[in-house]
Design a protein around this nucleic acid. Structure first.
Lengths: 207, 207
DNA sequence: CCCCGATGTTAGAGTATTCTTACTTAATGT
DNA sequence: ACATTAAGTAAGAATACTCTAACATCGGGG
């Protein structure tokens, strides 16, 4: 394999590749996608502006790596939240909404990247792969809530709406006029909103 | 007033200011916020790259004008959809979800701009003003759905969730693996999802 | 009729960014 | 010990973008 994860190291850092991704995400959080540049990330990581090119072929690859990392973290966060929410399927799914909101409030622009930036080249791939894992996690949780005979397409649709509600809630409120920094309150409301959607959906299914 | 809407014209175009906003939005739709530049907009409008600076003090002002224009259009689109949906308040509010989705599917990146780009300078103002009008429109529609004694804050919260569901639905599906170009179907589903949320919310209120 | 201001044009200064090239350093394995 | 090689550095070419300055042109009001 030509895997770049070989533990060979340079003479300066512990793990620059990971550090670059970390700083990249931090930069995104501060300046947004527009303010992102390889040079700035390098400076933040304390290396020369050419160093990143040893680890990523081009700017887009670094960006994609950041995006993939954000999704992977998000997947983990949501999975853990569901696990800690107890046995009830509705509780579990609703908990993901709260966790997602909390995460977004803390890592705003990293999440924006996922929804806004259009990856063109082959770097698209690692992003999509993580996205699939993310969706799989939610699909599993949704299956437990919906009737057993629900089709895959309907489940997916349900998940999308669940996620949409959550994502929108988390991202739109902070942009509004008032800056509500009550993270816990917002997360709780997001969970409630998710529950409303689940309730309404199930109700409609039954007639 | 120092209003720039004076009908004085140069020797070349009908209304360059409006044309620049139009082309700006079109460029955003194609290349995203990252690919936006004053020079490119100028080229698209068929003028020199210095011309836009006669109408906008800087890049951010043009961007803000585009954003404000998108929101204004969106407000109008939603208001009309509600009007055409008939007298029932739930129908009217649900219709806005369908209209929003339809609009976003056609004008994707223009909408992204609203949620992602962080306006810093004084240009923020015109964007916020249009945002307020947008919210006012939805607040009025939501008031008709909710019990008469609902507080402003609760109404606002309800609207945010409604909008979030819709926005998320409209923006996330297209980014997914499959590219579902069935606009009408998506719009209809968005409306259904909105209805689910309304149903669930009202149900929770009552018990 | 002519002046003036709004709105264009061209040219370019200044800056930032991406990515390349050639050189250097340090860790590793035999 | 020492060759090899991954991974860093410095320097810079090529490009793009923002915004300014000085000039040109059209249209309307005195």
């Amino acid at each position: 394999m030509s895997s770049p994860t070989t533990p060979r190291r340079g003479y300066h850092h512990g793990d620059l590749r990971a550090e670059l991704i970390r700083e990249g995400i931090a930069l995104l959080a501060e300046k947004g996608v527009e303010g992102f540049s390889v040079a700035k990330v390098a400076v933040r990581a304390g290396v020369s502006s050419a160093a990143p090119y040893r680890h990523f072929p081009d700017r887009e690859a670094l960006l994609a790596a950041c995006a993939a990392d954000v999704i992977a973290t998000l997947t983990e966060v949501l999975a853990r939240a569901a696990e800690e929410a107890g046995p009830d399927p509705v509780d579990r799914l609703a908990a993901t909404a709260g966790a997602y909101t909390r995460y977004v409030l803390d890592h705003r622009a990293g999440v924006d990247l996922l929804y806004v930036y259009v990856f063109k080249g082959p770097h698209h791939q690692i992003v999509q792969e993580q996205s699939r894992r993310f969706m799989d996690t939610l699909m599993a949780l949704a299956s437990a809530v919906l009737p057993a005979d629900t089709s895959w397409a309907d489940t997916a649709d349900f998940v999308y709406v669940h996620l949409s509600t959550t994502h929108g809630y988390a991202t739109m409120l902070p942009r509004g006029a008032r800056p509500p920094r009550d993270t816990d309150g917002l997360a709780a409301r997001a969970a409630t909103a998710a529950r409303d959607h689940i309730t309404g959906y199930l109700l409609r299914l039954r007639g």
